[in-house]
């Protein structure tokens, strides 16, 4: 349950790690674009940006099978992209466009790409942990050896659904991973002020008979290796693992929150451990050149720039869509 329990296994080679670095750049640049579009009034409602959390989504996704299931929260852009959604689909959804992932019916908080196993972003805190548990139950019933992963924030560890899901998953030994993105703030409140244990997710695992591991969530290689081990264990019938990945938000909780409640020295410390910098250091130590790193980021930048242009030029969501997709027949008829 402590740092000592963390094992560092460097299973990723340079080319694999470089590909993950480029994905992280893609997410970072998409989040920056989302922020800029929001500030210029082209994204309405709210956004909960995941800049700073990239290593968790990218490292975990790379450790999963393509047919595994992922359930995320309203801070979920990184998971959508890590599971195959394009920046264009995501930004178009944020901009209320017909070409958006959910055709304008979901918005920033509900990005979903079911065709690649990204089964949704849920905006009621903790609600998706039981769903992931159920998807894991389904995988076992269907004998597919799929794994389900629920990603959630530190704030979710104090809600009932978290504990109900962990208990059921543990007692049925289901192939599900519970991955906490602990960014140390439950919205605007330090999680330590409202939680009696230092590791809000991992320390609760033991109460449900589950292993709880604390890892560096800003190190994509460590996330990858931890999730790979836990997924293999779950797939072989050895049950769930709680993984608490420590990370930090680059932006505030949502919208224009400047996050002034965070001490300057704390912010500075975490920015120095930015997941992109951590990955760059690892890549340099593996002999990847500065040029190659620059090319990866430039490629990501080009994709996001084109995505912004395409999303801006896409047609607005079709008003007729308001009355489709309530029912499986595609319609919304509720009476004769």
């Amino acid at each position: 349950m402590t740092e000592a329990s963390v094992r560092r296994v460097e299973s990723l080679g340079a080319s694999e790690l470089l590909a993950l670095y480029e994905q992280m750049c893609l997410i970072r640049r998409t989040e920056q674009a989302a922020h800029d579009l929001f500030m210029s009034g082209m994204v309405k409602g709210t956004t909960h940006l995941a800049a700073g959390h990239e290593a968790i989504a990218v490292g975990a996704s790379a450790a999963l099978r393509p047919d595994d299931y992922v359930f995320a929260t309203y801070r979920g852009h990184h998971h959508a992209i890590a599971r195959g959604a394009t920046p264009e689909e995501c930004l178009a959804e944020l901009m209320s466009k017909a070409t958006g992932l959910c055709r304008g019916k979901g918005g920033s908080m509900h990005l979903t790409k079911a065709s690649t196993g990204m089964l949704g972003s849920y905006a009621i805190v903790g609600s998706h942990l039981p769903m992931a548990t159920g998807a894991a139950w389904s995988a076992r019933l269907r004998k597919t050896e799929q794994v389900a992963v629920a990603f959630f924030g530190d704030g979710a560890t104090n809600i009932g659904a978290f504990h109900e899901a962990l208990n059921l998953a543990a007692v049925w030994r289901l192939p599900v991973l519970f991955v906490c993105e602990n960014n140390f703030y439950m919205e605007y409140t330090p999680i330590a002020e409202v939680t009696a244990v230092p590791n809000p997710a991992a320390d609760r695992a033991a109460a449900h008979g589950l292993p709880g591991i604390v890892i560096d969530g800003n190190d994509v290689a460590e996330v990858h290796d931890t999730v790979a081990r836990a997924a293999a264990q779950a797939r072989s019938g050895d049950g769930p693992t709680v993984i608490e990945a420590r990370t930090y938000r680059h932006f505030g909780h949502s919208r224009t929150d400047p996050a002034k409640y965070r001490p300057a020295d704390e912010v500075e410390r975490w920015m120095a451990r930015d997941p992109l910098s951590v990955a760059r250091q690892r890549l340099e130590s593996l002999g990847v050149s500065a040029d190659e790193l620059q090319q990866a980021d430039a490629h990501a930048a080009g994709v996001v720039e084109a995505a912004v242009d395409a999303a801006k030029n896409a047609p607005e969501a079709d008003p007729a869509e308001a009355f489709t997709d309530v029912w499986a027949d595609g319609g919304s008829t509720w009476r004769t």
Binding site: Y69, G134, N167, V171
Partner: peptide, 22 residues
Amino acid sequence: RDTPISEQAIVGAAMGAAMTGV
């Protein structure tokens, strides 16, 4: 399957299973 007294887990898990082929 018998469950614990966990209404959120019962209905939430049923939802996750329903979304994935059961």
